[in-house]
Amino acid sequence: MKFLALLKKELRECLPWIVAAAAFLLIFGSLELRSMVRRDVEEYQYRVFERYSEVSAYDLGKYPLGDVGALVFISAVGLGLALGVRQFWVADFTGTWGFTLHRSTDRTRILAAKICAAIISLIAGVGLVLCYLFWRASLPDYSPVPPPIGFLIGGWLICGVGLLFYLGAGLAGLSKARWYTTKLAGLGFAVWMFFTFTQQWTLWWSFVTLVIGTGVLLYLMWETFLKREF
């Protein structure tokens, strides 16, 4: 009950950003799909993938759904940053940490509610819209060959990148260091992991990168949140 109440509160605060990201992706993604039609048919004929694992994250920027892929990056990263700021920076300005943290529940649970809300937000704001766009792109009126499932999986991994940036922004918000010292370290780490992610040859390795990056940031965030002074 308590966790749900916290989760509901966090989700409600994330809602405007979910809507913004979803709208952005839906509108521009749909526009992109309309413009592609038969543009890259020949490319498809040369590069038909049999196994999705042959698609790399880098490829996602090159192929038909690829332009949409760039949009997915933008909305996932944008949403991630917005959520990080909303959950961890705003409370400093509004002075509401005291009210939030003096609760009959552990601080870990309060943090867990925030993170769950962020994950749900990324799924709803980016992941689901991506599924819709993928389904649209699979329809015969868009391309002769349906895009490989790898694109969809890749797209979902990009949501994971959004999570990395969320955690990075959150850590930056929680850090009490100066701007020019370690305050942005978490965000810097997220950026580094993002570049590493895109340089992997296969989606599998991108996934592994994501898991490691997220794991590190999650641990750091948990430790910081528990010890931080409000």
């Binding site: 509160k9 509004t94 002075g95 509401t96 005291g98 009210f99 003096h102």
Partner: peptide, 10 residues
């Protein structure tokens, strides 16, 4: 606990 400034979720 009543916080300084009575800060609540706006």
């Amino acid at each position: 606990y009543v916080t300084e400034g009575h800060r609540l979720f706006g």
